[in-house]
Design a protein around this nucleic acid. Structure first.
Ligand SMILES: Nc1ccn([C@H]2C[C@H](O)[C@@H](COP(=O)(O)OP(=O)(O)OP(=O)(O)O)O2)c(=O)n1
Ligand SMILES: [Mg+2]
Length: 444
DNA sequence: CATGGTGTTTAC
DNA sequence: GTAAACAC
């Protein structure tokens, strides 16, 4: 007897938008003569030419990779243009990239609920806009950009170059499409339009994935880059996931993914299907277990959060190797440099968004000089945030000294206290301002 | 000698 | 409140 197939939940249309080689595009907009040339963005350059943090597509072709030293990148790509991240208060200053990301969010947020997921990634819930479009005749609405979408699972065998485009437009307009596929097509038209608006208004290209949940949207945004978009119809999900390495799925790129492979022999998302929800819960806890079981089936209920502003600001710096800080005075000096740039961020947030932060947290990474080969220990401490560079320095210094005493007393088991307290070295410091809230309106 | 500078979420 | 994990 055919059961009425009740949808588990309302059909959603979710997009993930990811800017192409983002910092490089920001620099190419500042210096248009770099457009079309192999380009990478590096931070610092005195030691081995700095390190690449973003690499343009021309440079990727000749083998330049993120985290590659500037010198090594030049060696593999002699024509490479290297642009340095701006420096403020003796540290890398990412403001211009954050601001550029905000420009993009301002455009994208016009189409629906918008979540800023990172400096260059946004999730959009375009369900409502797609529903509105779904009653129209799509044949007149499929733009050139929409018609060049990639559709996962469309026949891979293509006899002619032009058949790809033809096939795609036909897929969009086919009259026997399911409600799901039709809404997906509507979403893709909307996303193609907004990507063109991003290009027109910011000069940045981006790529997008359009699917029925966040996991699949994110997965697909990376499938065709740069300046392209990819759709995931539900009918394509099973085959797509069957052979997909689990590391391609969000949150499975690290330890949990390694454990899955080591403990269950799971290499692909499809491999996960054989395990019951109970078994997965048993091994990885109820939340993670259920999440894994759903993920194996392409099910993901995570909502797009309505949030375009960050929840925290931080300013940090590492002091690797011989540059480690060994006196309280140098630590305080750097706390002041960090406090200066953090306060600038707080000023910006207050004037632009009317928000204030209420919690200050310091993270410090520390080791014992005589055992420099051992992994450094991290610690964090928090206290209420008071505005003003001097207050931030005072408060973060207080937190640092408390951490240091804890650290030294742990390390000094069986040793002379003085021997230890004089031998620490700080390899990293960061200050974070969080608990950011809209400032209460003042009665007038 | 040495990716570094961010940011969010979850577990305890 | 703090640590760990995961990510760009
Ligand atoms: N470990 C990392 C990863 C990324 N970024 C910064 C630089 C990137 O330009 C930006 C976006 O990261 P992506 O992973 O999206 O990489 P790109 O946008 O550079 O390239 P793609 O076109 O592959 O998205 O974030 C960074 O500073 N450190
Ligand atoms: Mg990107």
């Amino acid at each position: 007897m055919p059961l009425a197939r009740r949808p588990a939940s309302r059909i959603r249309v979710i997009a993930h938008v990811d800017l192409d080689c983002f910092y490089v595009q920001v620099e190419q907009r500042r210096q248009p003569q770099l457009r079309g040339k192999p380009t990478a963005v590096i931070q610092y350059n005195s030691w081995k030419g700095g390190a690449c943090i973003a690499v343009g597509y021309e440079a990727r072709k000749c083998g330049v990779k993120r985290s590659m030293r500037g010198d090594a990148a030049k060696a593999v790509c002699p024509d490479l243009n290297l642009v340095q991240v701006p420096v403020l208060h003796e540290k890398a200053d990412l403001s211009i990239y954050r601001d550029a990301g905000s420009e993009v969010v301002a455009v994208l947020s016009r189409v629906g609920k918008c979540e800023r997921a990172s400096i260059d990634e946004v999730y959009l819930d375009v369900t409502e806009a797609a529903e509105r479009l779904s009653s129209k005749d799509l044949s007149t609405l499929v733009s050139e950009e929409a018609s060049t979408s990639h559709i996962v699972g469309l026949p891979q065998v293509r006899w002619l170059e032009s058949s790809a485009k033809l096939g795609t437009k036909e897929w969009f307009c086919r009259p026997d499409a399911s409600r799901e596929d039709h809404l997906l097509a509507c979403g893709a038209i909307i996303i193609a339009d907004i990507r063109l608006a991003v290009l027109a208004e910011t000069e940045f290209t981006c790529s997008a994935g359009v699917a029925h949940n966040k996991m699949l949207a994110k997965l697909s945004s990376g499938m065709h880059k740069p300046a392209q978009q990819t759709l995931v119809p539900s009918s394509a999900v099973e085959s797509l996931l069957a052979t997909l390495p689990i590391s391609k799925i969000g949150k499975l790129g690290g330890k949990l993914g390694q454990e899955l492979e080591g403990e269950l022999g799971v290499k692909t998302v499809g491999d996960l299907l054989q395990f019951s929800e109970l078994k997965l819960q048993d091994m990885y806890g109820p939340n993670t277990g259920t999440w894994l079981w759903n993920t194996a089936r392409g099910i993901n209920g995570d909502e797009v959060q309505d949030r375009t502003l960050p929840k925290s600001h931080s300013s940090g710096k590492t002091f690797p190797g011989p540059r480690a800080l060994k006196t309280l005075e140098t630590v305080v000096y750097w706390l002041k440099e960090l406090a200066e740039t953090l306060q600038l961020r707080l000023d910006e947030d207050l004037s632009q968004n009317n928000r204030t932060a209420h919690l200050l947290t310091i993270h410090a990474s520390c080791h014992i000089v005589s055992r420099a080969t051992e992994a450094p220990k991290f610690s964090s401490k928090s206290r209420p945030l008071r505005y003003g560079v001097d207050k931030i320095v005072e408060d973060s210094r207080y937190l640092f000294e408390r951490s240091l005493h804890e650290f030294c007393s742990h390390q000094s088991a069986g040793k002379e206290q003085s021997e230890i307290t004089s031998s620490w070295a700080v390899t990293g410091l960061s200050l974070t301002a969080s608990n950011i809230m809209a400032k209460p309106m003042v009665k007038t």
